[in-house]
Structure formats: C-alpha cells, structure tokens
C-alpha cells in the first residue's frame, strides 16, 4: 500500500473513530454493554475463570453482534445518504481503501468496547474467590486464566466478523429505513436464523451428522461457540463429547469477514 493510500486509510479510520467517540448514543450503548457483561460475574457468582467463560458465552454471543451492528450498520450508508460519498468519490480514493478505512475505524471502537468490559469482568474472579481452608491440600483444578484470555480473543474475532457483516449491510441499504430493517433482519439471521436453518437442515435430512460440523461453521454464532468450546472451555466441553473441530469454525469466520468486506467493496459504489 502506498503512502497515499495509508494516509487515506488512516484519515478514514480516524474519522470513524472520532465520529463514534463524539456520538453520545454510542457511549450509552457501550456503557450498557459493559454493564451487561459485568453483571454476569457480579450476579452469577463466577468463582473461577472457566465458569466465567461459561457464564459469558451466551450473553456475549448475542450482545456482541448487537453492539457491532449498532456501531456498523450505518457507517457507510449515512455517508451515502448525506451525499458525502459523492464528494469522497471525487477524490482519488479506491473503494477498497474507503471500506477498509471505515471498517478499521469502527473496528477500533468495537474492539475497545468489547475488550474493556471483558477485562473488568475478569477482575471479579480473584476479588470474589474464597480463601481455601489452610489445613486442606488445594490442588490445581482445570481452571486457568488462559481459558478466559482465549475467550477474550475469540470474542474479539467474533466482534470483528459481526462488524464486517454490519458494514456490508450499510453499503447495501439505500435509505435510513431500509438500513434499519436490513440491519435488524440480518442481525436476527446471524444470531438465530442460521442456527435455525442448520436445525431445519437436520430435521429434513439435508444435513447429516457427518456434515454438521462443517455446516455449523457457516453460522458465525455457531463458529464462535464452537471455538469457545474447543479452546476456552475445553475441560467442560471435553467431559461429555470430543471438542468440536476448530478448523471449520476458523475458516467460517474468516470467510465471513473476507466475504462481507468484499461485498461492501463491490457495492459501495460503481466504478
């Protein structure tokens, strides 16, 4: 990437980050997300990192896409609707540069919004732990902060993927109303729809037990869940069944990220 492009990406990303930081609604949203995440260990009594991962897994699976969509669904559409996209197009900016810049700027905000509450939630574990009676030998259980750290990074990837989808939505939609409708329906599809489709596939026999692992990886939420079970909740997942294969999930998530950003690039404007 040439210096000029790098400068464009930086400027575009900076503009997105500033826009997020300067919009009070986003700050409220981030605060609510943070409270929701922090309330899980506070109310649920974590006691360990592994239980915390298990407690947070489902809320995060739902809330992170919501957060990413809120941050991303009108990132590009708002520029287009305002007419500013036309102005930007008269500058020597490539579509990929523009989409990348917008994506990186929003991703910065989303990642920070996800990371900080998750890091805070982890502090509940040592704060809330009960001292062991000194007369008893205390063995190392399978609990390990490593699992939580892994969970955080998987969550980061999941957030980025969800943001990619949201950014693609924001390029496809033409109007504010259309954008909202499209964002909400896409969000539903991502959070429950794809899993329902897989279940439907199982019911009708389209998907068999052999192909389930790969099919499930097509759903970002399931891919996220699969990775968490495989890497961040291994001892619990492994107790009843072999941990789900990680490769299809990784490929699935990367596919979604690249696919949605490519879609956004192609649809953002016609050359």
């Amino acid at each position: 990437m040439s210096d000029g492009r790098l400068r464009q990406v930086r400027a575009l990303a900076q503009r997105e980050l500033d826009a997020v930081v300067r919009t009070r609604t986003y700050l409220v949203l981030v605060t609510l997300f943070g409270l929701a995440v922090a309330s899980v260990p506070a109310l649920g009594g974590a006691g360990g990192y592994l239980p915390l991962v298990l407690n947070l897994m489902t809320p995060v699976e739902v809330l992170v896409p919501v957060l990413a969509f809120a941050f991303g669904y009108q990132a590009i559409r708002a520029d287009a609707e305002r007419g500013e996209l036309d102005v930007i197009r008269t500058y020597p900016v490539r579509r990929a540069t523009y989409v990348l810049g917008v994506f990186l700027g929003r991703a910065t905000a989303v990642l920070a919004a996800v990371l900080v509450p998750l890091a805070l939630a982890a502090t509940f574990v040592p704060l809330a732990s009960q001292p062991a009676p000194s007369f008893l030998a205390s063995a190392a259980t399978v609990d390990d902060p490593i699992y939580y750290v892994r969970f955080v990074s998987i969550t980061g990837v999941y957030a980025v993927v969800a943001l990619g989808i949201a950014v693609a939505v924001s390029t496809v939609a033409r109007t504010r109303r259309e954008g909202l409708a499209l964002a909400v329906s896409t969000l539903l599809v991502v959070v429950v729809g794809l899993d329902l489709a897989v279940v439907g596939g199982l019911t009708t026999g389209v998907v068999g037990p052999d192909g389930l692992g790969a099919t499930l990886a097509l759903s970002p939420a399931s891919a996220f869940r699969g990775l968490v079970l495989a890497f961040a909740a291994t001892p619990v997942a492994g107790a009843s069944a072999p941990a789900p294969a990680a490769l299809p999930s990784v490929v699935g998530l990367l596919g979604w990220l690249i696919g949605t950003l490519a879609l956004a690039t192609v649809t953002v404007w016609r050359t």
Binding site: G45, A46, G47, G48, L50, P51, L54, A128, S129, Q130, T141, V142, D143, V236
Partner: peptide, 8 residues
C-alpha cells in the same frame, strides 16, 4: 455447568 469450580 461446572458446579465444582463455583462459589458456594
């Protein structure tokens, strides 16, 4: 899930 690791 994982009751053995949780608080009383």
């Amino acid at each position: 899930v994982a009751p053995g690791l949780r608080r009383s």
